[in-house]
Write a protein that binds this DNA or RNA. Sequence first.
DNA 1: ATACTTAATGGACGATCGTCCATTTCAGAA
DNA 2: TTCTGAAATGGACGATCGTCCATTAAGTAT
Lengths: 242, 242
Amino acid sequence: MSICVVRQGACVRWTKANSLEVRGKSGQGQALAQSHIRDPKKNRRLLVQATLDSVAEAGIAETTVSAIIKRAGLSRGMIHLHFGGKDGLIVAAAEAFGEEYYSEMDRQLALVSGDPASVVRAVIRADLSPEILNRRSAAIWHGFRGEARTNPAIARFSDTRDRRLRLMVFNAFDALLNTNPQDQDRELANEVTLGALALLEGMWTDYMTHPNAFSRDTANRIILRFLNGVVPGAFPVEQSGI
Amino acid sequence: MSICVVRQGACVRWTKANSLEVRGKSGQGQALAQSHIRDPKKNRRLLVQATLDSVAEAGIAETTVSAIIKRAGLSRGMIHLHFGGKDGLIVAAAEAFGEEYYSEMDRQLALVSGDPASVVRAVIRADLSPEILNRRSAAIWHGFRGEARTNPAIARFSDTRDRRLRLMVFNAFDALLNTNPQDQDRELANEVTLGALALLEGMWTDYMTHPNAFSRDTANRIILRFLNGVVPGAFPVEQSGI
DNA sequence: ATACTTAATGGACGATCGTCCATTTCAGAA
DNA sequence: TTCTGAAATGGACGATCGTCCATTAAGTAT
């Protein structure tokens, strides 16, 4: 759309951001692809995606302003314009990542019937699915989690994200274990929930450190085997998993 | 020992590194505390510890040369002198951290009788003990694990560390499950091992993100409960844990 | 066409990064 | 004491960090 004229020998390439192609990734194109009508938030999303890609490939430390704008094909000032600074962009990227996670999780859970064991099975399967657990997401999640220790904004987001998943799993185990309500049963449900989530966390870590040796089927089967041990019979382990 | 004379107004403090006090932390003082005889590797250790402390408190990204030498009370050039550069120091710090981990793990395991279930119990208890799992170690471990994706030297160290722990646990489960040797049992032992380690990983993550809400007893009890499910009766869960 | 608002640019800026090395300090030998 | 080699120092250096803003480009209203 606009060729950056070589002035003082600085810019030599197309600014890809303004080309007409519309990234069809998240299919929400609400008549945005029409000829001149530009998406007013396109560059915002472009910067957020570039940030996430950079965090995934190069890590948080290497995700500099220069690296981000190079990926996005935009100019330096855009970050300050849209997010007030780099920190604002990082937080926005963390939020966007959380939305990616939960929108896919919800999509996969929407197809599942309501009995508690099925919900748990579906959560585990979804959390290990290629759409949710992949090199990009594992690296991003690890990076942001580390950042959460220092950055309060990210810590808050990270917490709420965790809480929602925990509540979902807890409710399932609560319904599964509490045929007649009792306090120690509720405590048991809480412990089983923590254990299940710890197993998932550990699998994510395992995947991140050894993505090639990792098997989703095996991970899924192991978790079901462990859950079937604490809630006997509720999670029969099939021979071939996912 | 040496006051840095104010020259060009740069240095105004004692260089703490050369004061006579000997850090009694790792009690290996082999006659080093005697009057003039200086420990030739004191500054190496000082830099490594300063690096680990910085990684623990401020994260990998904030662990700069300036931050490290400020903590160590040494001068800029020491890092280049002893480690060839910052990267060398980071790797040395990762190795030192691994040694800290395993020396403490070995110390705690040395007291344990040899039956497999006791070994597993001891590994879990040790891995969750305050000496091994604390804010410092959790933050350091998380930081280095993220760095391992990019830094081959750290990846290699990180891998060998993991492998040793895994082998230890696997052998225990193998002995526990294989009364008469069979292939599918060996596969089962492998899966139980992966699950147990994933549980520990998850607990470490949980501790790192919520150190105040974390309970070592609860974590220990949860893991034993899950293990008792997959190896029935081998890990009876007491009412009050660790 | 002209004026005006918003989006976007990219270079300037001071701060800080890690590396390197000329110099100084120090302990032990001569 | 003087000499010598190693240990230690801290400032110089170019590179790169994130921020900021004067300027240009694009879109809309008059």
